[in-house]
Simulated assay, not measured.
Amino acid sequence: MKPYEKIGWVDHVVDVATEEVIQEGTPVSQTNMNHMDDGIFENREAVILHEGLIAANQQEIKVLKDATLNNMVNNVFLKNFDSVEAVLIISGVFDPVARKIYV
């Protein structure tokens, strides 16, 4: 994702007495509004992606922490599946609420 470049909005300032334009304001245009709209959208998409990555990392940390606290450090493995339909569980049980397979 490319970095967002600020527009740097400035007010349109006119001298009330002389009606002289002291400062040209940034135009409120389709280009400028779409620039902001695209930036907001791209940042929201990045937040959604990072929320998922953070949640996955939190799950892995919990599994590793629990294994360490229970002295099961030699039996720890992590595997994420899109669904369990493609997984044949021969021994163990799948908990759909916790989204975990216990073996």
Rank of each mutant, 00 (worst) to 15 (best):
E20P: 00
K2N: 15
L88M: 09
I89A: 06
N70G: 08
N34D: 14
E85C: 00
M1A: 12
T68G: 03
M33K: 09
K6G: 07
L49R: 15
V93G: 01
I22V: 14
A67V: 01
K62A: 12
Q23I: 02
Q30F: 12
N43K: 13
Q23V: 05
F77C: 04
V28H: 06
P3T: 06
I89F: 05
K2Y: 08
S29C: 11
Q59Y: 04
A67F: 03
A55H: 10
T18F: 04
T31I: 13
I101E: 00
V103G: 06
V87K: 05
K79M: 12
S91G: 03
E45A: 12
G39H: 04
K79L: 10
E51H: 09
E5L: 13
I89Q: 02
D37L: 14
V10W: 02
Q30Y: 11
Q58Y: 08
S29I: 02
M33C: 10
N43F: 13
N32T: 06
F77A: 09
K65D: 05
V10C: 08
I89P: 00
I61Y: 07
N34Q: 15
V63Q: 00
M33N: 10
V103A: 08
H12G: 02
K65G: 01
V63Y: 00
L69H: 03
N80M: 08
V103E: 09
K2Q: 12
A17F: 06
W9Q: 05
P3G: 03
D38V: 09
A17M: 07
D82E: 14
A56Y: 01
P3R: 10
L49I: 08
